[in-house]
């Protein structure tokens, strides 16, 4: 049983390293080739774990080969549009100016229910409101609504933004621990932080969460006391 235990740990580490080599692309929405890689890796990894007759290298070599080829393929796809089209396919427009392209839907084998579900998940309940709907190579539907259906933005209302509107609040204290990078991002220092915490009647270790923006607007969530 120790063999299975150590093999599982080694294969786990190997897959983590492999996914790190493949990069963040692999962890988000997947291209068809990336989905294949993920399925293959998860299946191959189980062979040497389940069957101690299979050498460890019998699992490690295929996994690393797949990882290498995924990187080679994505590098080639980056350099050549033709290869990119072969590996990932093309995005397809399925709604133009509120009109559903039924031929395109048939080719994609996408039912009207699937389409309506994806529209609804983007808060659109009427295809008439859509100017363009594009089915991306990852299978996600990107929707560009008509002007009348677009949400109101500050730009439309001609509202000028406040000074710190583009600076989101950052976590200054997480579970009692100060995050120095966030403090630096907010152009604040330890002295200000210590003073602010004291003014609110806390110690850093009493704070569960503290966020702050560049305008020094902060928000404190104290730790709940154990009953």
């Amino acid at each position: 049983m120790y063999v299975s235990l150590f093999r599982t740990i080694l294969l786990y580490l190997l897959i983590v390293v492999g996914l790190r080599i493949m990069g963040k692309r692999q962890l988000g929405e997947m291209q068809p080739s990336e989905l294949v890689v993920t399925i293959l890796i998860s299946n191959i990894a189980t062979l040497p774990i389940e069957d101690s007759n299979v050498p460890f290298l019998g699992g490690a070599i295929p996994i690393l080969t797949i990882v290498c080829f995924e990187v080679f393929a994505s590098t080639c796809a980056l350099k050549s549009q033709r290869i990119r089209k072969i590996i990932s396919g093309n995005p397809r427009i399925i709604i133009r100016d509120g009109v559903i392209d039924q031929k395109e839907l048939r080719e994609l084998r996408l039912s009207i229910d699937d389409l309506m579900e994806q529209l609804r998940s983007s808060s659109i309940f009427d295809p008439k409101e859509v100017l363009f709907a594009i089915l991306e190579t990852t299978g996600k539907l990107s929707i560009y609504p008509k002007f009348s259906a677009r949400p109101v933005t500050p730009q439309v209302l001609q509202i000028s933004p406040p000074a710190t509107s583009d600076a989101p609040p950052m976590v200054l204290i997480s579970d009692g621990k100060v995050v120095p990078d966030s403090l630096h991002y907010c152009n604040l220092d330890e002295k200000w932080l210590a003073k602010t915490i004291k003014e609110n009647g806390y110690k850093p270790e009493d704070i569960f969460l503290m966020t702050c923006n560049r305008n020094a607007d902060y928000y404190i969530v104290p730790k709940e006391t154990k009953q």
Partner: peptide, 22 residues
């Protein structure tokens, strides 16, 4: 390109292991 060269090195290593085993 760092990942590409890393993968290339790993792949050459794999070829060497397979050759050595044979």
């Amino acid at each position: 390109m760092k990942r590409f060269y890393l993968s290339l090195a790993v792949f050459i290593g794999l070829l060497a292991i397979c050759g050595f085993a044979l």
